[in-house]
Design a protein around this nucleic acid. Structure first.
Lengths: 356, 356
DNA sequence: TTGTAAGCGTTATCAC
DNA sequence: GTGATAACGCTTACAA
């Protein structure tokens, strides 16, 4: 009955209100049932080719876009993954978010980003938001303040898979994706030694993180490999604030035998150390060489860059964390076996130093 | 009937499967109706104090978290706002996202972030995702490639409020939040002139954006205010790639009468110009002064920083865009009247120059 | 190959 | 002050 069909079409093609077309509307307009339309739109094998065509054509005309909120509700799945990071002002985490998002989108998932700004309180609130949004899974780099992970374990126990990345609590055995910072430290020490350094300082971060311990182990084993005695006073801890980074630098430089080279937890720390050296120890500044972690693009703009940086793969880390997370989501009944994924961490030497 | 109640409690407190508790579960356990529980949890005035307490207590015990996916569906609102930006590698947009998110979260909204990476194709895909997620509203900084905004107008016509921020197409009258770049340019020119410059170059961006036109008008009017004739050859366009930024710089410096000062569209452009000057025009580099937009924190790490930068308020811009967007969402029937919101843009001079 | 009906969790409306 | 019922848009057994 073409006429009737046309009338219906008219009705549904130009709704006066801004209500978006639903599957029901399409079904009514084509005198089909909603289930048929639903299947047709998703290319279900049970539906005839002509029907599919008719449905898809009208859907296009009406600018039909499936209502994800309804699908999520119906499927009891949010098709949303969460990512909790300290801050997006850190290039590393921005890149990690990108890798995570890309993988998630490619697999039909949205991403909810949360920034703790290093506050455990905010981290807790964000976890509630994530649960409330029924995220299907979550990756976390814990805040600096997070020394107790009860709130995170509660989430795990509620059945939401979680993967740590980069910052994992040292006392928890759990899935984790991070850089191979150990090998990075070994390489950095070897390079320092090859340039004649024997007195090598190290500015580390929270000892509550495995990534700090691993850096330390690499630093220590690196020294051992070159028969350099380990000197506790050469290792300082910083909390990433500029004040703390400079303080750690000053403590090192005020030693009776200050270091001639410093390995820093990350480039941000190294850059503050560099400024501190030049401002507070101008006489020695030029003879102290620095290596950080992260290969921060900022360095390209410095006239006198530091010696080098251990280039990490944040994008890949985000992507691998997403991949692991989806595995966990799709195999909920698999037996629990903490997985540890590591990505490479390669020493990059800045050009002005290569040329010497 | 306490016994019965206890048994029910037991059943619902420790579900063997990981199914999360629902309002129904709480209702059954307390022998109440779901609607009562729903109201109690939301402090509805109709519900008695004791009932509210009982309900809330059990909800807490069961770790009940309201299912947002259900609420969204029921309310026909996603309580989600979208933000489309070129890239999170740009500090400006990260800060804008933060301001936007903060305001959104404080008003019970989630945020979906999309990065176009300057691709119109990706921008179109993201808009479909946003619609599919039924975002209640959207703010956009269009991609560099976006010279046609049909895809955006389609979204507006489908009833989703949109606010442009920073990058608005010049041919569209629509809500927009951005920096007062015009006044910024006026101030920059005035400062250049106060330092003796009469030959001032300008590296601008896409003329398709109002924000480029406004910068240009400020540049031109600034010159006029100081009776400096406008010279077309002193204005170059760049697309933000390093190559393009350097190219524009070279074109300026190769003029018969090259500029002694340059205003750049943003700090990234200025930094590339700075490097280009020092590498390709070492003789003149030190006598050319630069001002950009953005007060990029990177500059703090430079030993010889540029003259200054026009500090924008990205956080405030994000916040104001969110505020305007929520207004539009909450007053859908208000008559259409494009709103333009501007935030300040203040010249910041870097210390080494102040001291001269 | 297509249609029917139930249901996901919540809330609004209306009845009691 | 509390409860029953319907509805949101979609998918999925199962029925035809």
């Amino acid at each position: 009955m073409p006429t009737s069909s046309l009338i219906r079409l008219f009705v549904y093609i130009s709704p006066m209100d801004h209500k978006r077309p639903t599957i029901k509307d399409i079904a009514a307009a084509l005198s089909l049932s909603p289930s048929t339309v639903s299947k047709a739109l998703r290319d279900h094998p049970n539906i005839g080719a002509t029907t599919k065509e008719r449905v898809k054509k009208l859907a296009k005309q009406l600018h039909f876009v499936p209502n994800q909120t309804a699908i999520r509700f119906k499927q009891q799945k949010s098709f949303t993954l969460g990512i909790l990071i300290p801050s997006m002002l850190d290039h590393f985490y921005v890149a990690a978010v990108e890798g995570f998002e890309k993988f998630a989108y490619d697999h039909g998932y949205n991403v909810l980003i949360g920034q703790s700004h290093e506050s455990i309180q905010r981290e807790k609130e964000l976890l509630v938001t994530m649960q409330s949004n029924r995220v299907d899974g979550l990756i976390i780099a814990i805040s600096r303040e997070t020394l107790d992970t009860t709130h995170i374990n509660d989430v795990v126990n509620s059945g939401i898979p979680i993967v740590y990345f980069m910052r994992k609590p040292i006392n928890e055995e759990h899935h984790c994706v991070c850089s191979d910072v150990y090998t990075g430290a070994i390489d950095a020490i070897a390079y320092f030694v090859s340039r004649g350094h024997r007195r090598i300082g190290f500015i580390n971060a929270s000892s509550f993180w495995t990534t700090s311990r691993d850096r330390f182990l690499g630093y220590r084993d690196g020294l051992i490999q070159h028969r350099i005695p380990y000197d506790k006073s050469l290792v300082q801890e910083s909390d990433f604030t500029q004040a703390s980074n400079r303080q750690a630098t000053r403590r090192l430089m005020r030693l009776d035998k200050p270091p001639t080279a410093i390995l820093a937890f990350k480039d941000q720390v190294m850059l503050d150390a560099l400024n501190c050296l030049r401002q507070d120890f101008p006489a020695k500044a030029d003879s102290v060489e620095l290596i950080g972690y992260g290969a921060n693009p900022v360095i390209e703009y410095l006239e006198r860059p530091p010696l080098g940086s251990l280039k990490e793969q944040p994008h890949e880390i985000g992507q691998k964390a997403a991949s692991l997370l989806l595995d966990l989501i799709n195999n909920p009944q698999a037996e629990y076996q903490p997985k540890l994924v590591k990505t490479s961490c390669e020493l990059q030497v800045f050009s002005s130093h290569k040329q010497r």
